[in-house]
């Protein structure tokens, strides 16, 4: 019989796809190089490592780009936690019996989702920050958390609603309070289910954090802009900055996938 096993097909397909992938990369690289050549761009890759880090007498000293990365990591990790909490709270309020809670969370959602993040950042920086007397870093974290929190709340809400009604009924009949039901039965299951969209949201957060460079928070993008303003190394520095973001976001997806495989009952 002339059956081809799925494995053979997938091997052949993988080989063909890999060749296509390498060819596409080569074509893109060629386009960039040709463009730079036509512009008369002179490459100075040798200057780039100095902006990442320097070694003085064997001591490691972080350059502006790595310092910027540190700032980006600090802002995004704090914002992720705060956005998660805001998202969860908003979702619980929207699902609560209280009309006030539902109304407030709805207003918050609509305002955040229907205005541009950049405008929100400016509002926070020029209006809220002077009133509340908070620094640029806090403003950045607050604006990003409130923005991503709105999207996270929709993910939480969908996750909670996806849990079968019978789970609530079992909690109820066992005499658990509403909060105990959420804490021990509904949320543990919902969070496993929403890990993939929540990871996407965290990745969006990392990318959106570049917008706080507009209020002069010295994170990765801001450091890149500052270096380019001094040196005109726009091709090299933007390429390196993009690669650093890519490494961050890809590592986050891999981490999320590993976590997902470890927990039981993740469906």
């Amino acid at each position: 019989m002339a059956f081809v096993s799925p494995r053979t097909i997938s091997k052949a397909a993988t080989l063909r796809d890999s060749i296509l992938f390498v060819l596409s990369l080569a074509a893109m690289l060629w386009l960039v190089l040709r463009g730079a050549g036509q512009m008369g761009y002179s490459w100075h890759w040798q200057r780039v490592p100095g902006y990442l880090f320097t070694l003085e007498e064997g001591r490691f000293i972080a350059g502006p780009l790595l310092q910027g990365l540190g700032m980006t990591l600090a802002i995004t990790s704090i914002s992720m936690v705060v956005a998660g909490l805001i998202g969860l709270l908003t979702a619980l309020l929207r699902l609560s019996a209280s009309p006030v809670g539902r109304g407030l969370s709805r207003i918050y959602l609509e305002i955040i989702r229907n205005t541009p993040l950049l405008v929100q950042i400016f509002c926070f920086y020029f209006i809220m920050a002077p009133i509340l007397d908070i620094g640029r870093m806090t403003t950045a974290v607050l604006a990003l958390s409130l923005f991503e929190g709105a999207y996270a709340s929709e993910i939480f809400r969908a996750g909670i609603l996806s849990i079968h009604r019978g789970q609530w009924e079992a909690c109820h009949s066992l005499g658990l309070t509403r909060w105990q039901g959420y804490r021990h039965v509904i949320l543990p299951q919902a969070i496993r289910r929403i890990m993939p969209p929540l990871t996407s949201q965290a990745i969006s957060l990392i990318k959106d954090s570049s917008l706080v460079s507009t209020i002069a928070v010295y994170e990765l993008t801001m450091q890149g802009r500052a270096i380019i303003a001094d040196t005109y190394l726009s091709f090299e520095i933007w390429a390196v900055v993009a690669c650093i973001y890519l490494v961050l976001t890809v590592s986050l997806s891999i981490l999320a996938n590993t976590l997902k495989r470890r927990v039981h009952g993740a469906t």
Binding site: H164, G166, A170, S173, V185, P188, Q189, H264
Partner: peptide, 15 residues
């Protein structure tokens, strides 16, 4: 808390 209930679809906690 005085009443125990058993459901058609079991409703055990899968996690």
């Amino acid at each position: 808390r005085k009443i125990g209930m058993v459901f058609q679809s079991f409703n055990l906690f899968p996690h």
